[in-house]
Amino acid sequence: MSYSNEAMALKRPRKRIQVNRARLRRNRITGWLFISPWVIGFLAFALFPFLASLYYSFTNYDIISSPQWIGLKNYSNLMHDPLFWHSLYNTLYYTIFSVPLSTIVALGIALLLNMNVRGLTIYRTVFYLPAIVPFVASSVLWIWLFNPSFGFLDALLRAVGLPAPGWLYSVHWVKPSLILMSLWGVGQTVVIYLAGLQGVSKDLYEAAIIEGANAWQRSIKITIPMISPVILFNVIMGLIGSFQFFTQAYVMTQGGPDNASMFFALYLYQQAFQYLHLGYASAMAWLLFVLILVVTVLVYRGSSKWVYYGSEQ
């Protein structure tokens, strides 16, 4: 009798283990079923195009015929393509001026909107509204503003006795015009800065006021260091976006005049979908990917000298 009781006692843990394993297996299957739409979408619309573009960059491919392996010829041809280097120059020019200006303007607006003044919600809404306007619609609006015949900006300049620069129709002014337009949509960045400013402890400001620090000193010594991780995030996102600048140039200038606004992404689009040079365009895309990766890594590594995290001692 005692022997049978001991056997039953040994079987119970085994049954429990088997039940737990079966339950764990069912939970795993259920979990995979729930995330399967995302997994399928990722494999079909992200990973496969990513790897396919790498393969096509080593081929001569025009969609109509089968890809032909040509090795590094696409990359070699890019190195001898004057328009490729010109588009890269235009993109770097836009990035070098647009990202710092957007950062300064967005941070300045966020500091103003963080003040306790009457009608603050209205001001915040006004500055954020341009961020939700579609790029195509805002581009059409700015085409009218930059029009040399009846545009608002030229009319304003003539009213104060200044010459009209020609804006989108001038080789020298088309890139500054697009940079000026980029400041129109900083509202989304302003919201991120506002969230960072709300997280700065008021005790730090009170202590600084007791020590006799003025508003400028408080901004430089407290506000900027405390939101420096937010600044780093916005700078990196701004860099990535500026290297892929496309929609506004495509709608407003088509790369003109005289290729002065032929940006990298626009030239890539033309090679891929106008000339059907898919292999050539894939090589351009991978060079752009490497360029963005290198710049992002350099900025991130250099951030250790100016970014402060609250957990640091």
Results as ranks from 00 to 15, higher is better:
Ala9Asp: 07
Ala9Gly: 02
Gln18Val: 13
Asn20Cys: 13
Leu24Lys: 14
Arg25Ser: 11
Ile29Tyr: 04
Ile35His: 07
Trp38Gln: 10
Trp38Val: 14
Gly41Tyr: 09
Phe42Asp: 05
Ala44Ile: 15
Phe45Gly: 03
Phe48Gln: 01
Leu51Ala: 13
Leu51Val: 15
Tyr56Thr: 06
Tyr56Asn: 12
Ser57Pro: 06
Tyr61Ser: 02
Tyr61Arg: 03
Ile64Tyr: 15
Pro67Glu: 08
Tyr75His: 04
Asn77Glu: 14
Leu83Gly: 00
His86Phe: 03
Ser87Asp: 03
Thr95Tyr: 10
Leu101Tyr: 05
Ile104Leu: 13
Ile104Lys: 02
Ala106Arg: 04
Ala106His: 05
Ala106Thr: 03
Leu107Gln: 00
Ile109Asp: 00
Ile109Cys: 01
Ile109Thr: 01
Ala110Tyr: 08
Leu112Met: 12
Asn116Ala: 12
Gly119Glu: 04
Thr121Ile: 12
Tyr128Lys: 03
Val133Met: 07
Val133Leu: 08
Val133His: 06
Phe135His: 11
Val136Cys: 06
Ser138Phe: 01
Ser139Met: 06
Ile143Pro: 00
Ile143Leu: 12
Ser149Asn: 14
Phe152Asn: 02
Leu156Val: 15
Arg158Glu: 11
Trp167Asp: 02
Trp173Leu: 05
Leu178Asp: 10
Met181Glu: 14
Gly187Gln: 12
Thr189Arg: 14
Thr189Gln: 15
Ala195Gln: 01
Leu197Asp: 04
Val200Asn: 03
Asp203Arg: 10
Glu206Ser: 11
Glu206Val: 04
Ala213Tyr: 09
Asn214Leu: 08
Ala215Arg: 15
Ala215Ile: 11
Arg218Asn: 04
Arg218Asp: 00
Ile222Ser: 06
Met226Ile: 06
Val230Gly: 01
Val235Arg: 00
Ile236Trp: 04
Leu239Cys: 14
Tyr250Glu: 11
Gln254Glu: 15
Gln254Thr: 09
Asn259Ser: 14
Ala260Cys: 07
Ser261Asn: 03
Met262Gln: 15
Leu266Ala: 09
Gln271Thr: 10
Ala272Asn: 11
Leu276Gly: 01
Leu276Arg: 02
Leu276Thr: 10
Leu278Pro: 01
Gly279Lys: 03
Tyr280Gln: 00
Ala285Ser: 15
Leu288Val: 04
Phe289Gln: 02
Thr296His: 09
Ser303Cys: 03
Ser304Gln: 13
Val307Trp: 03
Tyr309Ile: 09
Glu312His: 12
